[in-house]
């Protein structure tokens, strides 16, 4: 079993239509694959998670269980049942 809690903040919450989602990630091998899986299920989320080459969007901050994951490590970062993936999109002043 591989249940992952996704936490979406700011614009991502708006586009995802929810603040949190528990997803069944059975068969998903890495953090990068997880985000590719999520992007595959929501076309509007895709450009806010992934760059055109399928890698993580450079301006997205990704945390697993509140620890930051550097983008270059996302393809090698495995996940465990019960992990929480927090996604913080870029925001600004104004």
């Amino acid at each position: 079993m591989l249940k992952i809690t996704m936490v979406y903040e700011a614009q991502l919450r708006e586009v995802a239509g929810q603040a949190e989602a528990v997803i069944d990630a059975e068969g998903v091998g890495s953090l990068l694959e997880l985000l590719q899986h999520v992007a595959g299920q929501n076309e509007q989320l895709r450009p806010r998670l992934l760059a055109e080459n399928g890698e993580l969007l450079p301006s997205l901050l990704v945390f697993v269980n509140d620890q930051p994951v550097e983008h270059s490590a996302a393809a090698a970062r495995s996940l465990a049942d019960g992990d929480t993936v927090l996604l913080l999109p870029p925001i600004s002043g104004g």
Binding site: Q11, P47, L57, P58, S59, P90, G93, G94
Partner: peptide
């Protein structure tokens, strides 16, 4: 380090209350 590039399609206007800012 946090944002190596500008976010694509960045919008300078967005929803917010004054109490939040």
């Amino acid at each position: 380090c946090l944002y190596p590039q500008s976010p694509p399609n960045w919008k300078r206007e967005f929803p917010v209350f004054g109490a939040v800012s």
